[in-house]
Design a protein around this nucleic acid. Structure first.
Length: 658
RNA sequence: GGGGUUGUAGCUCAGUCGGUUAGAGUGACGGCCUGUCACGCCGUAGGUCGCGGGUUCGAGCCCCGUCAGCCCCGCCA
């Protein structure tokens, strides 16, 4: 097909902006053909651009036949320029912002054709291609209105964020992408150095240390919207590269950091028409785990975990009584869901819940259910006499409803009941989807014991300040020591986390000792930080927000791929570019990653890279030296003016011997 | 590393107990249509049932392996 040139044609309006007020105006538009509806002597054509859709109309009875032919040739996703007069429609479409008008086509440019799209570009409820195809043809997927909306929203969030912090005198920085591998934390993505054989850069897991050093430099307030990299397995809300809104402040307490974040969350929520108001509730980590079984509880609904251990102190139900006998090592915890619907929860549904509990490491799922016919329970025979009434009293159960139980150590029961709490809330419609329930989870533990490393590891990172009241526990009972660390939680997602940092070398030394990091090791790994702390580091703290998760929650998506232009699969692949991929052996050699033994190849065709290869005599010598016999491989040879072979490689990579 | 789940026409899916020629909707292509807007009507083409092996007289269906997507556990300072 003969394509039209754009030439001097330019748009006078955005497609989505045209209204009845424009009637009578001649407009020029650009965009993609969404759909051609050919009624015979009347042709309708929807033109789509970033701002919306407008209908073009062509009456074949009074139009130039060439124009009619051209309009009929248009297919979905052709790129068009259109000129015409805006007219009021005979039959209006109330579902379209531009539905009152249409453009009477007088000129049509076909700027490009399009192959039939392998995935639908139209957004329709409950339809759409499988995600592998969507990712392969991401550039088409991104034409869909919902993804355009999400990515535009993401841009707005970033913009609001930047403005917010610049208004508060933050300074935007860029920190290195090629940086130093750090021993603590996630697995690093490594980048081999060509210049320094067998040495590696790491991509930053976060700019943590750089932002602290900028405080030491006296900038006082740092902001960066930065890419971070962690070579760990993915989830629906986790990608190997992701974006943080990263801030750091000097001379601040926890409340000061929270105080600049809360108004930002108010502004960001407003972008999607939600009102939230700071200050957000503060919930100590210990309470979060006790009441919600999670360090990022969804508090849009009021279900809480309860301790019913004492109820079974004299029970004949050995499983539960053993917990009561364990002096707090193990506990019986429960969730009580009141209501008729919960009281008639079916055997099949309970089996499904039990399956969930088992997958999370539970032995089973003890339950007690009070319906119209009274009690039904997996341990009913142990609930005779007063026991049933005691259990109801302990649960605070008055009418019909369902209780599920878990027994074990606190981490075990929290994990199971924390998950069941969410499922039960969804099942019984307790979640108010219109709500944004922000809260701060505070007073995280500083350290936790790692069975794998056989030492304490930092819960947050090794530069987190111990809670001032717990400072001495660092040596006496490290596991009990709280940190001045805080997470921002929204609707059951951790959207941010931060801490007040250690700013003196002495405390940092105590922290490293608690982590089992010796002085020498600390010097080798974090020498620059220790130096910085020795030269007048101010008290400081900060926080990082996950932009992807924040955008996901604002967009109402359940997956961060929906707010990332070019995301990776759960196996950390890009289906569009096919990354990661193999590289030439030559590249690997340059990076000193391919250690090859010299090999002898018998060379068939030889190409000479240097000018000396033109000399038949020198070439002959080289052939002799290479022992040229059979046609087995192709070689690339560099000679000097004496005919000495400087370099000889097969075209496929490995060096051959000469 | 482990568990679950999905893979059939360009796309979304159905396919019964293992049994004749693998279907539907949608899209594509062609034709008709003056008020469509997920247009409508008529017609046509379109299949490596992810891939490899096995069981069987016979496999889209059963078994083993493998690849890929998604979800979860581990992991993610």
């Amino acid at each position: 097909m003969q394509l039209d040139q754009l030439g001097t044609f330019s748009r006078t309006h955005r497609n989505g902006d045209l209204r009845l007020d424009h009637a009578g105006e001649t407009v020029r538009l650009l965009g993609w053909a969404r759909k051609v509806r050919d009624m015979g002597s009347l042709i309708f054509l929807d033109l789509r651009d970033r701002w919306g859709i407008v209908q073009l109309r062509l009456d074949t009875s009074d139009a130039d036949p060439a124009l009619v032919e051209k309009a009929r040739a248009v297919r979905s996703e052709f790129v068009l320029g259109a000129e015409g007069v805006v007219i009021e429609r005979e039959s209006k479409n109330p579902n379209l912002p531009t539905g009152a008008i249409e453009v009477k086509l007088s000129k049509l440019l076909i700027l490009n054709t399009a192959a039939t799209p392998p995935i639908p570009v139209e957004d329709h409820e409950g339809q759409g291609a499988n995600e592998d195809l969507r990712l392969k043809y991401r550039f088409l997927d991104l034409r869909r209105a919902s993804l355009q909306r999400n990515l535009i929203l993401r841009s707005q969030i970033a913009n609001v964020t930047r403005n917010h912090f610049l208004e508060h005198e933050f300074i935007e920085f860029e920190t290195p992408i090629l940086t130093k591998s750090t021993p603590e934390g996630a697995r690093d993505y490594l980048v081999p150095s060509r210049v320094h054989p067998h040495e590696f850069f790491a991509l930053p897991q976060s700019p943590q240390l750089f932002k602290q050093l900028l405080q030491v430099s006296g900038f006082e307030r740092y902001i960066q919207i930065c890419r971070c990299f962690r070579d760990e397995d993915l989830r629906a809300d986790r990608q190997p590269e992701f974006t943080q809104i990263d801030i750091e402040m000097s001379f601040v307490r926890q409340e000061d950091v929270q105080g600049v974040i809360e108004p930002l969350m108010e502004k960001v929520s407003k972008l999607v028409g939600r009102e939230v108001k700071g200050p957000f509730p503060r919930l100590p980590y210990a309470h979060a785990m006790e009441w919600y079984g999670s360090d990022k509880p969804d508090v849009r609904y009021d279900l809480k975990l309860q301790d019913v251990t004492a109820t079974f102190a004299t029970s004949t139900f050995n499983l539960f009584r053993a917990a009561a006998d364990s002096k707090g090592q193990r506990r019986v915890r429960a969730i009580w869901v009141p209501g008729e619907a919960a009281g008639v929860y079916s055997r099949k549904q309970l089996d499904e819940l039990q399956e969930v509990a088992k997958q999370l490491g539970g032995g089973g799922l003890p339950y007690a259910k009070w319906g119209k016919d009274g009690l039904s329970s997996s341990f009913k025979k142990f609930l005779e006499g007063d026991a049933e009434a005691q259990l109801k009293a302990a649960l605070g159960a008055t009418g019909e409803g369902l209780a599920v139980f878990a027994v074990g150590t606190d981490p075990q029961t929290s994990k199971i009941l924390g998950e069941l709490r969410q499922r039960l809330a969804r099942t019984f419609g307790l979640v108010d989807e219109s709500k944004f329930a922000f809260l701060w989870v505070v007073d995280f533990p500083l350290l936790e014991w790692s069975e794998e490393a056989e030492r304490f590891v930092a819960c947050h990172h090794p530069f987190t300040s111990p809670h001032p009241e717990d400072m001495d526990l660092l040596e006496t009972d490290p596991g009990k020591c709280r940190a001045v660390a805080y997470d921002l939680v929204l609707n059951g997602y951790e959207v941010g986390g931060g801490s007040i940092r250690i700013h003196d070398a002495q405390t940092q030394g105590r922290m490293f000792r608690a982590l089992g990091i010796g002085e020498e090791e600390a010097r080798a790994k974090f020498g620059f930080l220790l130096d910085a702390l020795a030269f007048g580091a101010p008290p400081m703290g900060g926080l990082a927000l996950g932009l992807d998760r924040l955008a996901m929650l604002m967009a109402g998506a359940d997956n961060i791929r929906e707010v990332i232009a070019f995301p990776k699969t759960a196996q950390a692949r890009c289906l569009m570019t096919d990354a990661p991929s193999e590289v030439d052996a030559r590249q690997l050699k340059e990076l000193h990653l391919l250690q090859e033994k010299p090999q002898t190849y018998k060379v068939g065709a030889v190409f000479f890279e240097s000018a000396e290869g033109h000399n038949p005599e020198l070439r002959g010598q080289a052939f002799q030296q290479l022992g040229l016999t059979q046609r087995q491989t192709q070689g690339l040879v560099t000679l000097d003016n004496q005919g000495t072979i400087l370099d000889a490689q097969t075209l496929s990579g490995p060096t051959f011997e000469f």
